[in-house]
């Protein structure tokens, strides 16, 4: 039984009331002819046709780049000041259930021992509103990684679309309940009697994939020498695109950007945390010239290990949510599910 009802025509009102209170309303909208998560100001900007936005909404908690400290180097010495993030009330509307499951994975890394408050303070103020999928494409494989378009993990408010384009509303978390209560003018108490829910589309589970077998294979350190890695991943060109669109990829670099450096001239600059990717050859390159992951297959293997071994084993969380973005974006058509299948077949 749904808790509430949301009319399509009331979304504009919801956007306005979130924004009037100083918040951000992020939803799938077109940019460069494709659906992406965008900060929108009116319901007209919503893309009605999307399956899954091209980018992940992880950037709402883990931006592509952000300043973590400012410094000035002057005649009187060094001034250094860390940045604060208070976060901003943010609603992501129309997220897909696969992706919602990824936030707790990111959180598990960013709170492992040391708490990265740049991430957690943003997440604390993020409300995730998912819409169950009525469309899928060939790259969707959530069901293969034990999720589904009906999953509500990581979702605060879960919506199901009706034939009329309205939504049945399920509050999932306390945060979601509070959000609905706050916007009770648009979240109506009762659905119309004639509301019919659109059929949910279930991507077919890839039969050849056996997550248990993959886990076992990866847990055995001997698998590192298995020829399966160079064989299957030889065509990877190391562009890193898969990592940037992946909702669970968390790697970053810390760099300085300054107006000048050295000499007697005073200068100022910022220290930044930027997305990085384990697919790049200099990612693990030592100062000595030694590189533990000196060839592309080792870097690809690391990414696969991260998804199906490190995340589940270290953090008991999902490294892959089956959103399929890495498959759609790959310029050489390296399909992660093909590697999953091939490894599942190994003895």
């Amino acid at each position: 039984m749904p808790d509430n009802f949301l009319k399509r025509r009331d979304i504009g009102k919801l956007i306005a009331s979130v924004r009037d209170a100083g918040g951000r309303f992020v939803a799938p909208a077109l940019a460069a002819r494709q659906a992406v998560y965008k900060d929108i100001s009116s319901a007209e900007e919503l893309d009605d046709d999307y399956i899954l936005p091209r980018n992940s909404y992880k950037e709402l908690v883990f931006p592509q780049t952000e300043v973590i400290a400012d410094f000035t180097i002057g005649k009187d010495g060094v001034g250094l000041k860390g940045r604060d993030v208070t976060g901003r009330d943010t609603v992501v509307f129309g997220a897909r259930p696969c992706e919602a499951a990824s936030l707790e994975s990111l959180r598990s890394v960013f709170t492992w021992g040391f708490i990265d408050e740049f991430c957690t303070k943003r997440e604390d103020r993020l409300v995730v509103i998912t819409i169950a999928c009525t469309k899928a494409d060939g790259a969707c494989f959530c069901t293969t990684v034990d999720l589904s378009p009906k999953s509500v993990t990581g979702s605060d408010v879960a919506l199901s679309e009706t034939d009329a384009g309205d939504y049945l509303v399920h509050s999932v978390s306390e945060k979601g309940k509070a959000f609905i209560a706050k916007h009770s003018d648009v979240f109506k108490a009762k659905p119309s009697a004639d509301a019919v829910v659109k059929p949910i589309i279930m991507p077919e589970r890839i039969k050849g994939v056996d997550l248990e077998k993959i886990k076992k294979f990866l847990s055995d350190t001997a698998h590192y020498e298995n020829p399966v890695w160079p064989e299957l991943t030889r065509k990877c060109i190391g562009c890193g695109a898969c990592t940037y669109v992946c909702p669970t990829c968390h790697c970053f670099d810390i760099t300085d950007e300054a107006t000048a450096y050295g000499g007697k001239t005073p200068f100022e600059g910022e220290r930044r945390k930027n997305w990085d990717a384990c697919q790049f050859d200099n990612f693990t390159l030592h100062a000595s010239g030694h590189n533990p992951r000196d060839t592309q297959f080792k870097r690809w293997r690391n990414r696969f290990m991260c998804k199906f071994n490190y995340y589940p084993k270290k953090f008991s969380s999902k490294g892959c949510v089956g959103c399929g973005r890495c498959i759609r974006v790959c310029p050489v058509r390296l399909d992660i599910t093909e590697v999953m299948e091939a490894i599942s077949k190994r003895p």
């Binding site: 968390h250 670099d253 810390i254 990612f283 693990t284 030592h286």
Partner: peptide
């Protein structure tokens, strides 16, 4: 063991040897 590190606190993703993070 030494590996390249950026964060030192188990987040940036580069010092791992398999599933072991050198920094943490």
């Amino acid at each position: 063991l030494e590996n390249k590190m950026k964060c030192g606190v188990g987040k940036c993703g580069r010092c791992n040897v398999g599933d072991i993070y050198i920094c943490k």
